[in-house]
């Protein structure tokens, strides 16, 4: 269970998150809303890159908000970024090792874990490729491997399907669906692709202007008139873009 309570973030006078609360019990949950709704801000607070003015994020009895950002990773939090952050001058393997470096465990365990994560994400064949030589999809797959390594408890993906073809998006969706069976972690996914969210997320939280618009089973949430109103804007916007 991922329990978000009363999360509030202000940037100067702007309220980016306004007392957001939700209890995610599904294995894969969604976080959607128009641009600027506060989705990435939510993930940044959970990661510890931003300080919340108020609120808690409680996962398996631990209040993440109280831990330093790097301690949250040791606890079992993983995330990917809207703009992926693979180090260019490291190989894929080194990018993965950079996470296990800071975790407990023997060298052998870590190597086995790395191989398992690479196998799962389908990057075994490119483990020795440099970050700068990866294409968009390879970067996304490397991100998936980064997220499932080191026995995670909670994983967040920020727009993982951005820039991918429909086939690649489908493959990525399958991977995300397989994460809970592999690791036991709860997954939170932000994406603009409503089809993807509908397919892989059992529960979804909808934000608009930093406020909670709806929360519940994904199919119900998507039928909610308030959600359709919020989304109409973005649909039109994207067609004209």
């Amino acid at each position: 269970m991922i329990s978000i309570e009363n999360l509030t973030v202000r940037f100067g006078g702007v309220v980016a998150l306004d007392h957001i609360g939700a209890e995610f019990s599904a294995n894969v949950s969604g976080l959607i809303g128009p641009n600027g709704a506060g989705k990435t801000t939510t993930m940044n607070v959970i990661s510890g890159f931003l300080d919340a003015h108020n609120g808690h994020v409680i996962v398996e009895g631990t209040d993440l908000v109280k831990l330093a950002p790097h301690k949250r990773v040791q606890w079992g939090l993983r995330r990917s970024f809207q703009k992926e952050q693979i180090a260019n001058d490291l190989t894929v393997r080194e990018n993965l090792m950079a996470i296990t470096d800071h975790l407990r465990g023997s060298r052998g365990d870590k190597r086995a874990d790395l191989e398992r994560a690479a196998e799962f994400a389908g990057v075994t064949g490119i483990l020795d490729k440099m970050g700068r030589d990866l294409n968009t999809f390879e970067r996304r797959l490397t991100d998936v491997a980064r997220c499932v390594i080191g026995h995670p408890k909670m994983i967040m993906f920020d727009e993982p399907a951005g820039g991918l073809t429909p086939e690649e998006t489908e493959r990525l969706g399958d991977l995300i669906l397989g994460i809970h069976d592999l690791t036991g972690a709860k997954v939170l996914v932000i994406d603009h692709d409503v089809e993807l969210i509908e397919r892989i997320c059992a529960e979804t939280l909808v934000l608009d202007f930093g406020k909670r618009v709806a929360f519940g089973p994904t199919s119900e949430v998507l039928r909610d008139p308030a959600v359709q109103a919020a989304y109409l804007g973005i649909e039109v916007e994207e067609e004209h873009a």
Partner: peptide
Amino acid sequence: RAWALIRKSEAAALASG
């Protein structure tokens, strides 16, 4: 490896622990 991530971005480094 930690330095390479810090050079990429501090967010990348923090997200890797």
